[in-house]
Design a protein around this nucleic acid. Structure first.
Lengths: 344, 344
DNA sequence: CTGAAAGCGCTTACAG
DNA sequence: CTGAAAGCGCTTACAG
């Protein structure tokens, strides 16, 4: 049956309310009432309509409905990479909130490319999503102004919007980084390296600021060879780490600026005879099972997502407050690698 | 400006082609031509229309377009949990293929709940997605028959569809499990335990079948206390592992049925004095940095996603072949834990 | 090169 | 309790 049915009814042949109405011998509006569970239909009429619906395999076309209703009951989430485990819990948290509000989630990766971010965001606006949760790749979001003015609720997460005022939900990158570095200092380190993400990324800059603040508060000088911002490609991170460890002013501890950097640094350190202390920004699975366990500054990615999505739906429910900034605290989790002392 | 503009133009006040036409002093169809880059508009007219578009902040409403065009240029992906790192690369791969075909991706988690899967899938059908990629939670997909008959292309991934014929892309669970267990046997083990997912999940059953086949081929008996299928909750896995290790016929090696099981088993083994061999189904980040490195049977999740999405778009492009089944090979990666010998 | 009319599948506003 | 008409914002098919 499948093949024939498929080839003959393949496209555009779905039954409509009009078809159901004709088959049930009622008006269009009556079908609409039954489909939407509105009152004012006799049980007998309702039954006839239900039978026609079942017989024809009718399913309401929500994209027609949307056109009349205004709201699409869908939101967009633009993040950097759907494959990055850091974004999984955030993604899921946004989905749960959307689901609670009866909305679907359209997802996309910017691949850290501002042009791709813009293309994706504007495609979502063209689909008339009710709102957007954006982890920005770009630094200029003025392209969103007409959309926001037209009523597209927009919340930025993890990094702030550029050149426009908008709601934003951030982790405490500065505070978390300062805690991490202060932790290493408290364990006796004086020469500490920082390997972070590209300097155009807000969190990288904030974490560098936290690193400098902790060093400064302890009265420790920072040799500029101890700071390396750049891509998170393994080769770049590896050579940055090696330069710091083997350079003229070798570091005794490293602070890595995000989970991708940490992973590479762990690999580099695993191949070395002498232990080097390490604290990483971002937690990751099994960090406690490596030996020593990796001390991290954990972000609460699920809470980041939940907070952003809740804010979004508050806006959609009509909240008309000025743009807000929410900061989610981080948590230092000691596991061993950050408590290693400097060599005697 | 933002606040006033937002509160006055908040909803439903986006400019339409009609507004653009009025402002540019042209007909509706001319605006449509300019917006869609169709030929047959003089440069001068085009310029006037473009000016009106910019002045009004017009953006074409794709959801109206969709209603006329038939295709929505969107596909749905229903997986188990957006937060699960295993699905990240699959998700991203599906997105990339969708993007190559100009389609957006609507995402959702079934939370391993058949009712929620169905609800989500039917909501996607109501939105008239062109196609669906489904990692099924349920075992009866007859509810999809009218949708498939109406032309919704559907591809199942990771687990087959239940009670209907449909395209499916699977990892070689049976072969991978057999390889894993044969590997342990080759390293001298005779008493090997298997801790897997719930028996209603197809992959769990296939992997159990692979386990039994390998044992059988080696002429080894299987004590039924060595097999435990069930939830992947840490408590369940922990007690299953402990029962096998401390029971009357203690195992010397474990084969864990998926990444969540493996993670818990690694934790259990880390707390034990005597080394126990382990091979896990599914690779995970940093598996090589734990000591010993965790030997795994790796699935190619990205290829799973890419294959499924490509098949989907082939269907959308009119391919009218009978339902296909594609099997993606797995790969055993020895890292140490699977090469541990049994105690002397 | 340009545009008026009809229609996609629903909901809204209204009348009986 | 029921339904005919108008309209959401586009595209299609056609005419000038």
């Amino acid at each position: 049956m499948t093949d024939t049915a498929r080839s003959t009814t393949r496209y555009g042949t779905r039954p409509t309310m009009k078809d159901v109405a004709a088959r049930a011998g009622v008006g269009l509006k009556t079908v609409s009432r039954v489909v939407n569970g509105e009152p004012g239909v006799t049980p007998d009429t309702e039954r006839r309509v239900q039978e026609a619906i079942t017989a024809l395999g009718f399913r309401r076309n929500d994209s027609a409905r949307v056109l009349r209703k205004g709201r699409t009951a869908s939101i967009g989430l633009v993040l950097e990479d759907l494959a990055d485990p850091f974004y999984g819990p955030l993604n899921r948290a946004v989905e749960e909130v959307a689901r609670d509000h009866g909305a679907l989630l359209i997802n996309g990766s910017s691949a850290e490319d501002p042009a791709r971010e813009q293309e994706l965001v504007l495609a979502l606006c063209a689909r008339r999503v009710d709102g957007l949760v954006i982890i920005p790749a770009g630094t200029d979001h003025r392209y969103l102004e007409p959309e926001i003015a037209a009523g597209v609720a927009t919340v930025f997460v993890d990094r702030p919007a550029g050149e426009i005022e908008a709601d934003v939900v951030l982790s405490d990158s500065f505070g978390g980084a300062r805690d991490a570095v202060a932790h290493l200092i408290a364990h006796g380190h004086r020469r500490i390296g920082f390997i972070g993400d590209q300097p155009r990324i807000h969190t990288a800059v904030e974490r560098l600021r936290g690193y400098r603040a902790a060093m400064d508060e302890a009265g420790l000088p920072v040799d500029e060879s101890w700071v390396a911002l750049g891509s998170t490609e393994p080769e770049r991170v590896r050579s940055a780490a090696e330069a710091m460890l083997d350079g003229p002013a070798p570091v005794t501890a490293l602070f890595s600026g995000n989970n991708r950097v940490t992973v590479t640094v762990v690999r580099v350190l695993a191949g070395r005879p002498r232990p080097v202390a390490l604290v990483g920004f971002d937690d990751f699975e099994l960090a406690d099972l490596i030996s020593p366990g990796i001390t991290v500054v954990a972000q609460d990615a699920a809470r980041l997502g939940r907070t952003a999505a809740s804010l979004l739906f508050r806006r959609l429910d009509g909240a008309d407050e000025p743009p807000q900034q929410r900061v989610i605290p981080t948590r230092l989790i000691p596991r061993g690698s950050g408590e290693l002392p400097p060599p005697a």
